[in-house]
C-alpha cells in the first residue's frame, strides 16, 4: 500500500474527511447571524485545530510521534500496525449492502425490501441453499409485519414506487 510520511494513505482518510466536513461547516456557519453562529463556529474552529493535530500525529515523523504520544497514546504507530486489517473490498461490500437495503426500503417499501434483502444477502453473501434463504426471508418479513403492523399498529412505509411520500 502507498505510504506518505511512513503511514499508509488510507490512515489519513478519516482526518482528511473530517477536515473537509469541518471546513464546509465553518463556511456555512459564517452565513448566519453572529448570535446563531457563535457556538457552532467556535466548535468548528476548535475542530480544525484538533483534526490538524490528528492528521500530523498520524505521520511517522518525530513531531507526529510526539503528538501521538502526548494526545493519543493508544493510537501509536506500532500498535496500529498490530491491528487486524480486513480487505478494503470486503468492507466496501458490507457498507454497500447497508446502502442497498436502505435504498430498497425507500423505493419499494419495507414489506418488499425486507424479504428481498434477507434472501439476496443470504444467497449471495452467505452462500446458503435456496430453501434456507427463502425460509429466513419469509421469517424476517413475518416478524417485521407481526411486530410493527399487528402488535404496534404502525403502517409500514409502502415505498416511493408504491405511493409513499
Amino acid at each position: 500500500m502507498k505510504r506518505v510520511l511512513g503511514t499508509p494513505v488510507t490512515d489519513y482518510m478519516p482526518a482528511l474527511g473530517l477536515l473537509a466536513v469541518t471546513a464546509i461547516y465553518l463556511v456555512t456557519a459564517y452565513q448566519y447571524s453572529p448570535d446563531a453562529r457563535a457556538v457552532p463556529a467556535g466548535v468548528a474552529w476548535v475542530m480544525m485545530i484538533l483534526v490538524s493535530f490528528d492528521l500530523v500525529s498520524r505521520t511517522r515523523t518525530k513531531i507526529g510521534a510526539t503528538l501521538m504520544h502526548w494526545l493519543n497514546p493508544a493510537g501509536d504507530a506500532d500498535k496500529q500496525d498490530a491491528v487486524k486489517r480486513y480487505p478494503v473490498l470486503k468492507q466496501i461490500v458490507a457498507v454497500a449492502w447497508i446502502a442497498g437495503f436502505a435504498a430498497a426500503m425507500l423505493l419499494i417499501g419495507i414489506l418488499y425490501a425486507v424479504p428481498l434483502y434477507v434472501f439476496s444477502s443470504l444467497l449471495i453473501q452467505g452462500r446458503r441453499p435456496l430453501l434456507v434463504c427463502i425460509g429466513f426471508a419469509a421469517a424476517a418479513t413475518l416478524m417485521i409485519w407481526l411486530l410493527f403492523d399487528v402488535v404496534l399498529s404502525l403502517e409500514l412505509y409502502p415505498g416511493i414506487l408504491f405511493g409513499g411520500a
Partner: peptide
C-alpha cells in the same frame, strides 16, 4: 451472515417506526 440481516431488518424498520418518517432510515 444470518444474524446480521435479521438484526438490520429490525433496526431499519424500528428506525422508521419512531415517527413514521422514511428519512430516519
Amino acid at each position: 451472515q444470518i444474524l446480521a440481516p435479521m438484526v438490520l431488518c429490525v433496526a431499519f424498520a424500528g428506525s422508521y417506526a419512531i415517527d413514521m418518517t422514511i428519512e430516519n432510515v
